[in-house]
Design a protein around this nucleic acid. Structure first.
Length: 492
RNA sequence: GGCGCUAUCGUCUAGGGGUUAGGACGUGAGAUUCUCAAUCUUAAAACCCGGGUUCGAUUCCCGGUAGCGCUACCA
């Protein structure tokens, strides 16, 4: 085999090969990420290949959606291909396998869904009579226009065992006699997934195939194809599957948008947090780290860390996001420099219909960054910084726990007296308002609630002094004044 | 049905012939604080079942069970 192992074992070439039949889903994203991490960790290269040989189900919208998802992840690839543009290669390779006598034409009409040959007794291995058709008869029938599928002629009755070593699952073996004569070409001349995938992997000199565990047993067929092609098969690494809480495979149809990458993006996940989360599903750095940056993940990644059991991604009808993903996102939000976070937040305010100037948002960001878990939480947490008029609130909120309306009014009135002459920075406000509380004979907590609600329109808000400093004197005075009036009419 | 893969707290996982079976999320309690968060402390929470090997198995082996995958002219 002179041209086997055409690649250098030193620099891996990996590929991510999605088929564009829907949006990019989280399982695919994780496969992509693991490929990327392996390539980058080993200074290899990464190929993106669209496996679009299923004309019936492929859509351009889906292609765009996959790119959209991948771009958001921010992990780049080095080369890009579409299988639909490589059909000549696939047919040539099928032809080559056929010429070597390793495949045969099967003139049996394609099965309909209703046909159940496998569910009966024993597995289907081939269509009787078709393997043995002579080359002459086969050529004659093909020439006459009779449609056929091209099948691999799996060697039978030789007691042959197929073997490969999976980087994750270890030694794998299977009797050749148990592998069915799988199709290489469909009767419409299109290559099947198995053929197209292997022909391209060989042609693109892929060194490591890293993909979902659902392909583990298909690998034996692929071994035959590589053999038929006369090349050394690549290394294989199968990844455990991501499954729904009930253990079923994640499906676009059954689980809907919760399995789409763009759903995470739109909810305000940081891509690095999303990547971090996905990596922890089925892989572990084995040193108790949970929060890892992309660089740390790259440095730590290896197949030894990959688990073999399927991983449940925890979501419910009410809460589409795994709590750990949300927690990690909050961690990554807090790890982001304030100006960067502020920039990331900007579009979410725009989407919420709030006009947040970059300067103002920059000042507000440190006040909310420990209070949000998703970027989309920000507008609700900080709306009062950007609203001219506070949304109406219940004046009863102004009244502290152990107090009454009269007390709340006294606090507000006192604040109105004091604030005009106070500098609006944290320390000055701190001093002035604590003094005010003391002079009224109140505890800080009691005195601050009316002011907080007056200024923010709600009980739960960022720390009072910073908040007031950012809002500025005019707005604070106006809102406190307004609150005082509200309370007046509330009491009356 | 056949073949293959898998099995540690609710979830993600570490570990491994003798351990108080570790960490994280989530949950409960407490501390701190001007509220909410954040932070800190703390509690509850797991080795699928049966046999074997062994002085000793959760760990190794076999069987069972369960889950998943493949069994298509889908990928």
């Amino acid at each position: 085999m002179p041209d086997s192992t055409p690649y250098s074992a030193k620099t891996p070439r990996v590929r991510f090969a999605p088929s564009p039949t829907g949006f990019l889903h989280v399982g695919s994203a994780r496969t992509f990420i693991f490929n990327w991490l392996y390539a980058r960790h080993n200074h290899g290269s990464m190929v993106l290949r669209l496996d679009d040989t299923d004309l019936e189900r492929n859509t351009e919208a889906s292609v765009q959606s996959i790119f959209e998802g991948l771009r958001w992840l921010g992990l780049s690839w080095d080369e890009e291909y579409r299988q639909s543009e490589r059909l000549d290669l696939h047919r040539r390779q099928a032809e080559a396998i056929f010429t070597k006598g390793l495949a045969y034409r099967d003139f049996t009409p394609a099965h309909s869904e209703a046909d159940e040959h496998s569910s009966a007794q024993g597995a289907w291995l081939f269509n009787p009579g078709m393997r043995e058709i002579s080359r002459e008869e086969s050529d004659r029938r093909a020439a006459s226009g009779e449609p056929f599928a091209l099948r691999y002629r799996v060697p039978r009755g030789q007691g042959r065992t197929l073997r490969f070593t999976d980087a994750v699952y270890g030694e794998q073996s299977k009797l050749a006699d148990e592998v069915e004569d799988f199709a290489l070409l469909r009767s419409d001349g299109m290559p099947t997934y198995h053929l197209a995938s292997c022909a391209d992997d060989a042609d693109l000199r892929i060194s490591h195939i890293i993909r979902g565990q659902d392909h583990l047993t298909n690998t034996f067929k692929h071994l035959f194809i590589f053999e038929g092609l006369g090349v050394q098969p690549p290394q294989f690494a199968h990844l455990p599957l991501l499954v729904a809480p009930d253990g079923s495979k994640l499906s676009k149809r059954r689980h809907g948008p919760v399995v789409s990458v763009t759903t995470y993006r739109d909810a305000g996940f940081l891509p690095q947090a999303f990547v971090n989360f996905l990596c922890l599903l089925g892989w572990s750095p084995k040193d108790d780290r949970e929060f890892l940056t992309i660089d740390e993940l790259t440095a730590a990644f290896s197949f030894e860390g990959v688990n073999r059991a399927n991983a449940v991604i925890n979501f419910t009808e009410e809460d589409p996001f795994d709590p750990k993903a949300v927690w990690l996102n909050a961690e990554h939000i807090r790890a982001l420099p304030v100006d960067e976070l502020s920039r990331q937040l900007q579009p979410f305010f725009a989407a919420a219909g709030l006009h947040a100037s970059p300067e103002r948002l920059l000042a507000v960001t440190p006040l909310i960054r420990e209070r949000i878990k998703l970027l989309r939480d920000a507008p609700a947490a900080a709306d009062f910084f950007f609203l001219k008029e506070l949304a109406p609130y219940d004046p009863a909120e102004l009244i502290p726990q152990k107090g009454d309306a009269a007390l709340a009014r006294r606090v507000l009135q006192h604040a109105l007296e004091v604030l005009p002459s106070v500098q609006f920075d944290h320390d000055s406000l701190d001093q002035a308002l604590r003094q005010a509380a003391a002079s009224l004979g109140l505890k800080a907590g009691q005195a601050f609630q009316p002011i907080r609600v007056a200024v923010c329109g709600r009980k739960n808000a960022p720390p009072l002094f910073e908040t007031m400093a950012v809002l500025g004197r005019d707005i604070c005075l106006a809102r406190i004044h307004q609150a005082e009036e509200n309370l007046q009419s509330f009491v009356a």
